[in-house]
């Protein structure tokens, strides 16, 4: 499986945010997208996921097979919002996404243990702190299997220990043949990750 972007351009409200972005990502590789605020990191991720139309260029997923015919079907998208309902408990939220997206490598309880939220799954999502909410959203990546993770500021609100644990999770995902595209301005701690700097002249 291979994710290829050629000469990609994106726009917001009719104004070009970036253009001429190109990269190729093989299985087991990670791409860290960095750049100042407003350089189009989030826009790029949403274009890759297919949530925004691209202004120009080419974007394709090679050798996805029958399971993953398109990028949208092969990706987990973790945006600024956590996509969890505050009125439902953490376990109910995760169960829903597992049922909707298809089950993955770990069960709901196991995924919660992995992100360090074991034992509080019965609480309503609205009772959790910002960092705990983010970790619950990360657990969502584990309950369903997708080879490509699109992460938008994934570590926002996480403490040092959780950051390190999440870095371990991302390494494990890459080791198992997954791919990661992460937009961030904090170092994520993924060894051997490619870097794409946006918003610079030339």
């Amino acid at each position: 499986m291979r994710l290829i972007a050629e000469n990609l351009g994106g726009e917001r409200g009719g104004e070009a945010v970036f253009s001429g972005i190109g990269f190729a990502l093989d299985q087991g590789q990670a791409l860290v997208v960095t750049g100042p605020n407003g350089s189009g990191k989030s826009t790029l991720l949403r274009i890759i996921a297919g949530l925004l139309p691209k202004a120009e260029g080419r974007l394709l997923l090679e050798n996805g097979g029958d399971d993953f015919p398109s990028i949208a079907s092969a990706c987990h998208y973790l945006g600024h919002q956590n996509a969890m309902k505050t009125a439902l408990s953490v376990v109910e939220n995760l169960r829903f996404w597992r049922d909707f997206n298809g089950s993955g490598d770990s069960g709901v309880e196991e995924a919660l243990e992995t992100v360090g939220l074991g034992g509080i799954g019965h609480l309503p999502f609205g009772y959790l702190s910002t960092g705990q909410r983010r970790r619950a959203a990360i657990a969502k990546l584990l309950v369903s299997h997708r080879p490509l993770w699109l992460l938008d500021e994934p570590t926002a609100g996480l403490d040092k220990a959780s950051e390190a644990r999440f870095a371990g999770l991302m390494m494990k995902h890459c080791m198992a043949g997954g791919m990661i595209v992460a937009a961030t301005h904090l170092p994520l701690g993924i060894e051997g990750a490619k870097e794409l700097r946006m918003g610079e002249a030339g």
Binding site: A49, A72, S73, Y77, G79, Q81, N82, A83, T86, N101
Partner: peptide, 16 residues
Amino acid sequence: REDGSLDLLVLGNDRN
């Protein structure tokens, strides 16, 4: 839409 679930429902189009 407000909590981001709508994006994931739209992305799930190939399965559901």
